[in-house]
Every structure is written in structure tokens, then in C-alpha cells.
């Protein structure tokens, strides 16, 4: 999948074992700093749209702050009810101390139209 790389924040702006919210074109994303690296997923829970950037990172799991549904951060897989639908994940890379995520080109369709 081709996409556009977007700068999100400096690597030191997300504590280890924590999550940061990021908004682009009205869509929310969650950026994670885990022991195995940086990851990005959709920013709202697939159960009832709670803001995952307010959630709790436990190893490679993000726990929703509202109903404690759980997702596997690297794959976005829903791990426990009430979360049943997987989260979208996005590619992440680090360049010059910055975290970048790759958003699908469709995200910017409005600007290129």
C-alpha cells in the first residue's frame, strides 16, 4: 500500500509504555512507544469510539479507557471483549528523532481533488 508519511512528534515526546493521540484531517490516531518499538493504530476504540490515547499501555496491549477492551498494538487485533473488531494499524518509521506514520493516500483525497 502506498501512502504519505506524516511527521507526528519527536520520539522523546512519548514516554516508554505510553500512547499519544494525533489528529489528521479529522481522523484520530494513536501512536505507541512500547518495549518492541513505536507503533500506530486508529485512535478510537472499535467498540464505542472511546479515545485510545487516554488508554493504558500494558506491554504490547492497549486497553480502552472506557470499557477496558484490549487490542494488540503491533497487529491491532482485538484481544478481549467488549472489543471484537480489530483496529487499523499504520506503518511507523523513525527519522532524525522524529516519529512518522504512513497514512493511505486516500486520507488526502480532499486536498488533491
Amino acid at each position: 500500500m502506498s501512502g504519505t508519511w506524516i511527521e507526528v512528534c519527536r520520539t522523546d515526546e512519548i514516554d516508554e509504555k505510553d500512547v499519544l493521540g494525533f489528529e489528521c484531517r479529522g481522523e484520530k490516531y494513536a501512536i505507541y512507544n512500547t518495549a518492541s518499538g513505536f507503533y500506530a493504530t486508529a485512535g478510537v476504540c472499535t467498540h464505542e469510539a472511546a479515545d485510545l490515547s487516554m488508554g493504558l499501555v500494558i506491554d504490547d496491549i492497549i486497553e480502552c479507557p472506557m470499557h477496558q477492551g484490549r487490542f494488540h498494538i503491533p497487529t491491532g487485533k482485538a484481544k478481549s471483549a467488549p472489543a471484537c473488531v480489530d483496529l487499523k494499524t499504520y506503518a511507523v518509521k523513525i527519522e532524525d528523532g522524529m516519529v512518522l506514520i504512513e497514512l493511505p493516500d486516500g486520507t488526502f483525497a480532499e486536498s488533491t481533488a
Partner: peptide
């Protein structure tokens, strides 16, 4: 257990 997990999620929403 399965019923009440969903019921309680609804209660919190």
C-alpha cells in the same frame, strides 16, 4: 459472565 460483561459496558456508556 458473558451477558454481564456486555451489560456492564452498556451501563458505563
Amino acid at each position: 459472565g458473558y451477558l454481564w460483561r456486555w451489560s456492564h459496558a452498556r451501563h458505563h456508556t
